[in-house]
Design a protein around this nucleic acid. Structure first.
Lengths: 227, 227
DNA sequence: TTGAAGTATACTGTATACAGTATTGTCTAT
DNA sequence: ATAGACAATACTGTATACAGTATACTTCAA
């Protein structure tokens, strides 16, 4: 039997999807922006088929919505959406943190702290990119430590809707510093394998995050930069 | 200006998707079963394109998974998956029930009770179809009464994974009768606008449902009818 | 009988063609 | 100048063609 090729060529669809997701996260695609199959296809130099499929997946995931007459547009979460998402987060994420604290291994703890250090290192940077990457990595690991894949999937569902607003919020180093102050205790509680403390820290962290996001979103809407 | 046509023709993709979803729910497609673009297309008399898109959506939703070498297969939730889903349900659904009890209107209550009566009417029927329809309708309404669309979406994420096993479980009228015994108090608590009682009833209901599903799934796996 | 090679088959990924529809811009007649 | 008709444009929905690849099958040789 022949071995599989080491290089497994990714379908174009996946590459297009990755491009679009990336653009959504880093703000190249802003809420309200129009997207058509042909436009995406042409821009990325592929045919309509993979573009169409990537858009369908994004649509299914809720990151974009169909326009009245053709095309899609990037979703612009309202303040109400954000409030509702945080209600759900309060139900799920502290629970995930608790489970993680019960199951975490020493290796996991090292990795969590590595991500945290990575955040610390970029907390005052001009660009928030590296900070955000470390943040996403840390959160991803933390949730997966819960050992409950269904829980991770549920959390993943709304994460994407938050990313644009979160990135907007964390552009400001001052807010990053505040965020670190509530991230540290969470990692610490998990490192001490203290489920109660982890759950409490997750609640605190969410409350801070909610306040910051609502503030920034409110300002953005008011100044007409959004919506 | 001309009025929009009243009849807005559904894309084939949607029809294919609906067919497949329906087949998943009522057991025409059983876990482990193979699905190919061409097979679906031919069976439903459409070209590969809409079939492909419907499959992509199902895949994205997690109802089917890609096979090693071509095609998809219907997902077969393991006992662990079900346990994990119920952990999530315990976090979300009692909360949704609580919110619903706080916001429910008299009209909603009438509708809930109508669905409950519909369930009662078919609890001993030979086919579980009508019972299941009423059950889905009731749950859908109940959750949407929470007023939190993000919460509804999260709940919707895993619902599909449960439906096959739930349908299998509720084939047995005896289990349907047990289910009614825990459904009634929930609707009652909401009708009384009692959030505490609603939350508690939802927990109880979930615990009963979990036990029943695990039992049936365990038997099915043991007898090799599944997996 | 068995192993190896070559061939047929089945399926996906991708591009492209074509039809249908809504919107927009333009031209003409009044 | 303006209303109304008509053409151009911009999309999506759907079918289909074609290439690439993995699997199964068959055939031929030792």
């Amino acid at each position: 039997m022949k071995l599989n090729k080491v290089v497994k060529r990714e379908p174009l669809r996946q590459q297009v999807l990755a491009s679009l997701k990336n653009a959504l996260i880093n703000g190249d695609l802003t809420p309200g922006q129009r997207l058509t199959e042909e436009g995406v296809a042409e821009f990325l130099g592929v045919s309509r088929t993979p573009a169409r499929e990537a858009l369908a997946i994004l649509h299914q995931a809720g990151s974009i919505k169909r326009r009245e007459n053709g095309g899609f547009e990037v979703i612009a979460p309202t303040m109400e959406d954000i409030e509702q998402i945080f209600q759900v987060r309060h139900r799920l994420e502290p629970y995930a943190a608790r489970l993680a604290a019960e199951k975490v291994t020493s290796g996991d703890i090292r990795q969590l702290q590595k991500y945290l250090a990575e955040q610390e290192a970029h907390v005052n940077a001009v660009s928030a990119t590296r900070y955000l990457e470390a943040d996403r990595a840390l959160r991803g690991l933390l949730f997966s430590l819960s050992g409950n894949q269904q829980l991770v999937d549920c959390i993943g569902r709304y994460e994407e809707h938050l990313q644009f607003v979160a990135a907007l919020t964390l552009k400001d180093p001052a807010i990053r510093r505040i965020a670190m102050n509530v991230d540290r205790p969470l990692v610490e509680a998990i490192s001490k394998r203290d489920p109660e403390a982890a759950e409490a820290a997750a609640h605190t962290q969410l409350e801070e995050a909610r306040k910051a996001l609502m503030q920034v979103l409110g300002d953005a809407i008011e100044s007409g930069l959004y919506g």
